[in-house]
Nucleic acid binder design. Structure first.
Lengths: 246, 246
DNA sequence: CTAATTGTTTCACATGATGAAACTAAGTTA
DNA sequence: TAACTTAGTTTCATCATGTGAAACAATTAG
């Protein structure tokens, strides 16, 4: 991996790189971590010893794979509310709602589900939407497509493998490739009759997917034509959100 | 602080110690971190440079204090559900409910509120309880007293300072000292008429408070007498929970 | 205005981090 | 069953890195 940045501590940089391997995977072996980080196995072993001793990673007793430890949860509890992405991104979501006049939602993937972590309601629509915190499946909706299409390859393979009995794998992969190409996904009446949605990925500064930004509304306002018209604005807004997250 | 453990990487140990300063504080200056960790300011400065470069801490632009960065949230999202403390501790909560026959709850502190992160309902009571995820104030209830009494001194001072217009500070401090002495807190009809509660602290392996375990029920079953009788069992159960968390 | 405090930079030096090599254990294949 | 492969662990010579003391700059307090 990259050599030490000026002014940083190389061993610490490396240990944090190991932790960051767990942003989209829950279980990893030592050799897998060495491959992901480009570090020697003996180096990874020692750095993991430090992370494990302080509770940042733990060793699963049955699989012997490494996973994130309790301290990550403990620290996350103490993230102040002002730093919560759901709070940081709210003004930009409100700005987008004011421009487009539709309901704006933000979703993250959690295993084989997505969670609605923030929402700004359309001013004129009074239809029901899933409450914040709701867990929804990943096989319907524009944001589900985004959370799969822009996920790492391992996650995509796992989801596709889970669904192999229900989908045309080849057609699904083509659909995901098309979404990556245009940079957004659409859905029409997939989760709810009469409702369409457009969704774009939110990436962090390391170009990793962190959330899906979604605009939804009734079919008479979100036609295929103006979904395409809105896509550029939604992608641009998602990019602005990515820049707001450190 | 302590010298390197056998087989760990000293610089990484130190950087993680810096991160762990944020388990009960949201904002810290460089000198404060140096004091908490016993490290030289120039050492802390360099280690923070690594943590900041990778997004684990960030510098507040107005106060210039350090705070936890976005990556902590991002990693916590990927903690697998099996590692979520609310999941890990559920069997022990069920065991306690089966013994005592009352409603068991687990609370964590978040700023000036507490959050109910897990609950096991009494088998015979059908009274309403706050749903999981509910935010409740910290100035009522046995678990509130525990979350204050066993918090670090800074947190206690901050809460007391917030409430100084509404409480007898001296009496409150005496009450907190008494709770620390016996190891548990009680409340009678503080949040809800006809309901009493007993609460004990859950500490992690570093003896830091992570949650409050609470048993609640109607006054006719939770008299002062049998709250005292139950306290020992509740404390013992909270200790078992602390050992379950890595 | 002066003193104190916090944060930042520099650099000589000691030691800690590294990876190559070897080893152990477990799983896979023929 | 034996041989091979893979993953994880240990050892150690080497040198690059991490450290803290000192000095400096900026800000705050009296």
């Amino acid at each position: 991996m990259e050599e030490s940045k000026s002014g940083t501590v190389r061993a610490v940089d490396r240990a944090l790189d190991i932790l960051l391997c767990f942003t989209d995977t829950t279980d990893l072996g030592l050799t897998e971590i060495a491959e992901k980080t480009g570090l020697h196995k003996s180096t990874v072993f020692r750095l993991l010893a430090s992370l494990e001793a302080k509770g940042f990673v733990t060793r699963d007793s049955s699989t012997e794979k490494y996973k994130l430890g309790f301290r990550i949860w403990e620290l996350s509890v103490n993230l102040s509310q002002g730093d919560d992405p759901a709070t940081i991104l709210l003004p930009e979501m409100e700005r987008l709602r004011d421009i487009l006049g539709e309901t704006i939602s933000l979703y993250i993937r959690d295993g084989s589900e997505r969670i609605r972590i923030q929402a700004v309601q359309s001013k004129h629509s009074i239809r029901r939407v899933a409450p914040i915190g709701a867990r929804l499946p990943l096989y319907v909706g524009a944001s589900s497509k985004v959370l799969i299409a822009f996920a790492d390859m391992n996650t995509q393979e796992n989801m596709i493998n889970d669904w192999k009995e229900f989908i045309d794998i080849s057609a699904y992969k083509d659909q995901m490739a098309g979404i990556r190409k245009v940079g957004y996904a659409t859905s029409v009446e997939e989760r709810e009759p009469g409702v369409a949605a457009v969704s774009a990925p939110v990436f962090n500064r390391s170009h990793q997917l962190v959330a899906a930004l979604s605009v939804s509304g009734p079919l008479n306002r979100l036609t295929l034509e103006n979904m395409k018209d809105h896509a550029g604005l939604i992608i641009e807004s998602a990019n602005r959100m990515g820049n707001m997250l450190r």
